[in-house]
Structures are given as structure tokens and as C-alpha cells.
Computed example of a mutant assay.
Amino acid sequence: MTPTAFVKALAAFSLDNVFNPYADVCPVHDRADAAESRRRNLRTYLTAAAEIGVDTIWMGRDLGYRGGRRTGLALTDEYHLPELARRYPGCHSRQATRGPAVAERTAAEIWAVLRAIDTPPLLWNVFPFHPHEPGNPFTNRRFTARELDQVDELNNALISWLRIRQIVAIGQDAAFYAQRFGVKVITIRHPSYGGVREFRDGMQQLYRLPVNALNRAQQVALL
């Protein structure tokens, strides 16, 4: 498995009511070369993660319409693209959409933790695409069991290639899915729907961060 081969395999997927950011172009927000930009974003990100020697995945559920749909990167919105190269040296990212960068609340919480820890994990999702409601591409929905079956082989290949030893599941959906890989799984509350405090507390305990470290990291992002 190589980053190029992995991204090429992702780009080959085509599912109903699912936006594939590595192959599809949004007629409303995307630049003409958006899919190519997102493939490059992910390819260089995976290469950088492998060179760092990541052995942990932070695993969310799927790409959201304000975040990964636009960037091609899990748990990462456009607002945080400039930080990628600092946390993952060698990663080259580019905004694939027109207009100002769009921020996402979950990404803000994820990146606050990334600023506070020494070795970054790989950010990934159970379902690496953006599932949406029929006829409404700018909504989020849960993937179906049939859709999830389509990506099982690729997720297994990714975990095997990087020799992942631990998955930090962001939310119960991710935790349930992650059990199948035979590695240690730690579940952290997802920060959405009122879960910010529990998410921060869980990450603080997991990484033994000082009290208020994540609040300070959020403030740094605003400077």
C-alpha cells in the first residue's frame, strides 16, 4: 500500500447520495480542479503521517459538509489547513473551494488538542466520504451498513500499512466500528450536540494535559 494507490482507490468509489471529495466536484463551492487538490491534500498528508511514524488513529464517523467534504481530510476544516504542515511536516494542502475558508466546530476542538500534544495521530473517519440526504448535498446523514461494507477493505489496509496500535474513537459510532480491527480502542465523547466539555475532559485525561490546556490552545487559534 502506498499513499498514491490508496487515494486512487478512494477516488474510484461512486455511491448514490454520497459525495466523494477525491472524484466529485461541487458545482456550488468548488474550484474546477477541486478533486485533484483534495487528492493531493490526502496523499501528502498520508505520506507525512507515515514518515512521522503515527501509531494512533483518531477516528470520527464520516466527512461533514463544512469540513472534510471541502478539504478531503478527516476532522479538518479549511480554517485549519495552514496548520497541517506544522503538525505534519511535508504535508502540502490547498483550499479546493472558492471564497473565504469555512470553519467547523468539531474541527476546532480536534485541532485544539493537536496543538497541545507532542506526537500527532492520523485523523481518519469510519466512512471516508460525505453521505448526505437525497436531493440535499449540504446535509449530513449517517452512512448505511451497505455503504460501510464498501470501505472495510480500505480501512483494514490503512491500519495494516501504518501498523496502527490504538484507535481513539470520537463518538460511539466510531467506537462500535473500530472494535473489528483487533487493536486497542479508547472512546471519547464527540464534541457535537453538547459534548464539548466531555470531549475536552476525555482528551485531557488520555494525554495527561494540564488543566485548561485545551482552552489555551483554542485561544492561540484565535490570535
Rank of each mutant, 00 (worst) to 15 (best):
L42N: 02
F19A: 07
D33K: 05
D24C: 04
R40C: 11
R38K: 12
T44S: 15
E51N: 11
C26S: 14
D30V: 10
A11E: 02
H29V: 11
I52R: 01
A34G: 08
S37I: 12
A12C: 11
T44Q: 04
R38T: 07
F19V: 10
H29S: 13
A50G: 12
A11F: 03
A49L: 06
A23Q: 06
S37P: 06
N41R: 08
Y45C: 00
D24M: 02
R31Q: 13
N17E: 15
D24F: 03
L42G: 03
A48S: 06
R40F: 12
A34M: 07
E36A: 15
D16Y: 08
V18L: 08
L10H: 04
I52P: 00
R31H: 05
R43A: 09
A12M: 12
D33H: 05
V18E: 00
A35M: 07
A11P: 03
L46V: 12
D30R: 04
A12Y: 12
G53R: 07
G53C: 06
V28W: 13
P21H: 07
R40N: 14
F19G: 00
R39E: 10
V25W: 04
P21W: 03
V54L: 00
V28H: 13
A12Q: 15
S14W: 09
E51T: 10
R31I: 03
A49R: 04
D16K: 14
F19Y: 14
T47F: 08
P21E: 07
L46M: 13
A50P: 04
T47Y: 05
I52D: 01
E51K: 14
A50Q: 11
N20T: 03
N20P: 00
R31Y: 06
R40S: 15
R40G: 11
L42W: 03
R39Y: 10
A50V: 09
A12R: 13
F19R: 06
F19W: 13
C26N: 15
A11N: 00
L15Q: 10
D33S: 07
S14N: 14
V25K: 06
S37A: 15
E51Q: 15
F13G: 01
T44K: 05
C26L: 13
V18H: 03
T44G: 03
F19H: 11
A34I: 04
L15A: 09
P21M: 09
R38E: 14
P21Y: 05
A23Y: 03
V18C: 06
R40V: 09
Y45Q: 01
F13K: 05
V54Y: 00
F13N: 04
D24G: 02
S14P: 07
V54T: 00
S14C: 13
N17A: 13
E51D: 15
E36S: 15
L42Q: 03
G53I: 08
A32E: 15
R39K: 14
E36W: 10
R43P: 02
A23R: 05
H29P: 06
A50D: 11
D24H: 09
P27Y: 12
E51Y: 07
V25G: 01
D33M: 11
S14A: 15
R39F: 08
R39V: 01
F19P: 01
T44V: 07
D24V: 05
A12F: 10
R39G: 06
A35R: 01
F13Q: 06
R31F: 05
N41W: 06
S14Y: 11
A34Q: 03
P21I: 07
D30L: 10
A32N: 11
A35L: 07
R43V: 04
N20I: 00
